[in-house]
Design a protein around this nucleic acid. Structure first.
Lengths: 142, 142
DNA sequence: TGTAAATATTTCGAATTCGAAATATAATTA
DNA sequence: TAATTATATTTCGAATTCGAAATATTTACA
């Protein structure tokens, strides 16, 4: 192919999904960044700040701000690591956990209901293609 | 499928591409929003503010700001429409046009070099899948 | 035709995001 | 082991982004 339509539709799909998630989690007083962090910790139990950054793909300076807000809201705890004193580890608090127990299943159902317009095979191919693109653009970037 | 991996890899792919574009157009003193507007006008010659919003998928309040900056930089002109006096039409200035003549081919080549890790068929399937997702999430949203 | 609803755009204030530089600690290496 | 380099995180100031409300004009329709 010789045009950028794929980029356009990728950006559109992203935008739609992002807006959906934004509107969804807004009901719970969260923004997308905050939700992403909670989601990462919901699946991983314990992560360093760096660990979250690697998952969520937000610059570290932004992440500090996001984490600060989540701590203020008492959704996560942040403790100095004993092993590496530069590092902090993050965990959901009980409040955070119960919020996520409530939100996540709904969020997942919403997202799945969109993905389910694709059949199994299509989704597989889509995934593979996106992974390739994600990887390549990371290499080209450097 | 029963997980959100597709969402994750979609967000990752988007992030990589977006960061690439950001770093690329930064050299020319542009941010991604500004570049997107220029790109829309590069292909369409003349568009109303609303026309650009529909293409670029940015809230109108944000768009006012982006357009204001592009006018300040003298990359686009903005004129009241005679037909509909609520409306303004936007066009690239000569400066804007020559900037885009310089940037766009490089941008296109960069983007294509990423997309070209996919073969023709894969890219086609990817496009179709993304279009479906974009459409669906728009419907669910309302 | 007059009034209400719809549409295009801007204004406003607040929140978020960013990159660059600073800080603190750890790892490497001479 | 001291000095250098690498890594984790925060701070800072500026730019961008957002949604909600305001403004101006057009359209619908009673």
């Amino acid at each position: 192919m010789n045009n950028l339509k794929t980029i356009t539709v990728l950006f559109r799909a992203y935008n739609s999904l992002e807006k959906m998630i934004r509107d969804d989690v807004f009901q719970y007083g969260l923004n997308v960044s905050e939700f992403s962090v909670l989601e990462a910790l919901y699946h991983k139990e314990k992560l360093s700040v760096k660990g979250v950054i690697d998952k969520v793909l937000v610059p570290n300076s932004s992440m500090s701000y996001v984490i600060e807000n989540l701590v203020k809201k008492n959704y996560i705890s942040k403790n100095k690591s004993d092993i590496d004193k530069r590092s902090f580890y993050l965990q959901l608090t009980d409040v955070g956990k119960s919020i996520m127990d409530r939100i996540f299943p709904i969020h997942k159902k919403n997202m799945r209901s969109i993905l389910d317009v694709l059949d199994e095979k299509e989704e597989e191919v889509l995934q593979k293609a996106l992974i390739k693109i994600g990887k390549t653009s990371k290499i080209v970037k450097q």
